[in-house]
Design a protein around this nucleic acid. Structure first.
Lengths: 205, 205
DNA sequence: TTCTCCTCGCTAGCAGCGCTAGGGACGAGA
DNA sequence: TCTCGTCCCTAGCGCTGCTAGCGAGGAGAA
């Protein structure tokens, strides 16, 4: 009896935990969809609560605050992002082609999923970066960039730093364009220039 | 009599316009100082109104809204920014050294005046960019960059596009670092790598 | 000089934000 | 069946950007 009672208690608890986890996923998905559809400004706690058909305080029983929800969306986004970079790099042969493919995949992702990109790389969000505690997905995304850039690190250049620089350049292109500070129409040519300068046509590829 | 009356009216009107202009400058300066001291989040209309010792609605008689105030701060910032880039480029000789000096001045400005930099290049602000209507100061800043990058445009490369690309790279370095996504400590080395890739050591400079 | 009008800056308030305190319903376990 | 504990909701706080509408005070006319 005692054992069945404990088993029953455990199953109930298990079910509750399962339901809670499900609801948490629901929150993250809703936040992401709302952000992608109408931008992060439209993602208010009230709106999000209405979307998941719960009251506002429920959000705070899952996440510390709005930032934490955005961070969760960002982590999910990183997984997709990594997959796309990987697919792009695996679809081509040669170091130069890989660098180009990754660069194109990067900017394409940012333009296709601006809200996701912002959560990951633009907005202030309490996610650890560039430390061992950084989310795995994030580290893997950086790893994909690293694999593409590494072949072009000259003697004595640290591949990590070169990758960070390439990443920064891609990020700059994307953000300046998205904020209207660079005209969209020349994006492909700017990207080509960038790639040319990291992978000169007469070397390595 | 009629003419003196009209002259008197004109001087009164002139004085008022002068006072209005002065107050407008006061608003912009206060906004800038507050932003530099405590960040843009601290620049609320109430706080700003208190700072200039007027009530909130006065702000709206000068500017359409908070965004317009930030845009005004940004324009002022551009003037300083341009001056710094110019000073940096004039202080050195040689194309490569100029490119490096401008790059360093750029990132140094962004790190020393983060609030100003954000208003100019990061935050959403209704300033026209990359069009003939863009503020003169902005166009001059770009011109300084262009002068530095131009010598490194290869045959058939458009200097404007190459400049935009270099700008984007600098912007990416700065923003990723400022948001904690790139470690500060390696900034100089990343910047050096970037410059190396835009001005190869065995050419032009 | 007096009166009228008009300009200008104020008080007060709106809708919406992120976030939280506290109570009430409902189910679990005795 | 009763009690206890969990969970979620209502209501509200202090803040945001922004605005309507009034009242004082100076400008211009008589």
């Amino acid at each position: 009896m005692a054992s069945t009672a404990r088993i029953a208690a455990m199953t109930i608890q298990t079910r509750r935990e399962r339901e809670r986890a499900e609801r948490e996923r629901l929150i993250v998905t809703a936040a992401r969809e709302l952000a992608e559809a109408e931008g992060w400004d439209a993602v208010t706690t009230r709106r999000l609560a209405a979307e998941i058909e719960y009251s506002q305080p429920v959000l705070y029983s899952h996440f510390k605050g709005k930032d934490a929800i955005m961070a969760a969306v960002a982590v999910r986004g990183c997984e997709e992002f990594t997959a796309e970079l990987r697919a792009a790099s695996e679809a081509v042969e040669g170091a130069r082609e890989t660098l180009a493919a990754v660069g194109e995949a990067y900017t394409a992702f940012a333009r296709r999923r601006p809200a996701l990109y912002d959560a990951m790389f633009t907005l202030r969000v309490d996610l650890p970066f560039a430390t061992p505690e950084a989310p795995t997905a994030l580290q893997e995304a950086f790893g994909e960039l690293l694999r593409a850039v590494e072949p072009f690190a000259a003697e004595g250049e640290e591949p990590r730093l070169l990758t960070e620089t390439y990443w920064a350049a891609l990020h700059g292109l994307v953000t300046l364009m998205r904020s209207g500070r660079l005209p969209e129409e020349a994006h492909d040519r700017r990207l080509a220039l960038l790639i040319d300068h990291f992978a000169p046509r007469d070397t390595a590829g």
